[in-house]
Write a protein that binds this DNA or RNA. Sequence first.
DNA 1: GAATTAAGGACAGTCATGTTGACTTATCTG
DNA 2: CAGATAAGTCAACATGACTGTCCTTAATTC
Lengths: 172, 172
Amino acid sequence: MTVLNSAAIAAPIKLAPASPLFLREDEIRRGIELLYFGYTAMIRGADAILDTQGLGRAHHRALYFIARRPGLSVGELIGLLGITKQSLGRVLTDLTGRELVEQAVGTSDRRQRLLSLTPAGAALEARLFAELERSMARAYGEAGQHAVTGFWAVLMGLVPPDARPQVEALQG
Amino acid sequence: MTVLNSAAIAAPIKLAPASPLFLREDEIRRGIELLYFGYTAMIRGADAILDTQGLGRAHHRALYFIARRPGLSVGELIGLLGITKQSLGRVLTDLTGRELVEQAVGTSDRRQRLLSLTPAGAALEARLFAELERSMARAYGEAGQHAVTGFWAVLMGLVPPDARPQVEALQG
DNA sequence: GAATTAAGGACAGTCATGTTGACTTATCTG
DNA sequence: CAGATAAGTCAACATGACTGTCCTTAATTC
């Protein structure tokens, strides 16, 4: 696990706090912009690794969720990614062809194909995760523990209530 | 401006707080996943409006930043979006062709083309912004004012330090 | 047991949005 | 005036989404 930078602990990022009436347009725009720039900054690090493998972000997202929930079905992965069967099909064909992902016949329902990473797939996913982790760990460390709780709460608030159980189910 | 939902104030979203040792892999993955789902949830609302206009997300991003910083130059917009001149060129051709965006010769440097929205462009951007705002205001309201400050701090921490002034310059 | 439904795979075509590279024009700066 | 910079344009290409259709296999239902 990444070692926390002690200088970062000593000097958390200071921003003007959200105002009591925090729904002014500028504060909404601030959130939109930080979400946009923060999100793109986080994933940028992994792109270089993907490039060397001839893979794209679509492959990364599939690898990520298969690593997170090994044994999930194709249909469950489609649901998480929010894309069509055909779009995922191409990605999965690539990943199984390179022997990064394996498919097993479902146990309770033999129509299903349960997905898991091969050792090579797990190794690649670990490298990609390390890049995301580097960004995220630095941000957590600079902002402080208390800020992280707020970060999670606002992001969960952005997810439509009916989709929240699916996100929660991913954790732990 | 959106009226704050008082029920949301009374019952902010409760999540397990970040642990004292908050760099465990699961907490990093929680941040990655919430950032992914939160980001995609926020922008989804605007997509339906864009569809009816035959425009895409690339057009939306350009409209957004031109609305945010009217009179910015083409080069400045390229810097914010992180895309090439050729990619932006296609988007800008569409937007000026539909008379949503106007270009004016730069005052101090006549090589520059300063971008601004036409009344029709401003009207469309306002509709798109209202969709993002609806998501963001709900999330702010549900999470509470204090959480918003933490949300901003973590996201700013994700942005590489040398890119932060550019993000700050967008505000107010 | 036969018919229907569901999970998944495969193929074809299209669209949006990004990329390189090369070239032009206008303008600014040393 | 020479070189650098801002912007526009044309061409070719890659990625990753989409729709639509057809097929196989397995499960469910009548």
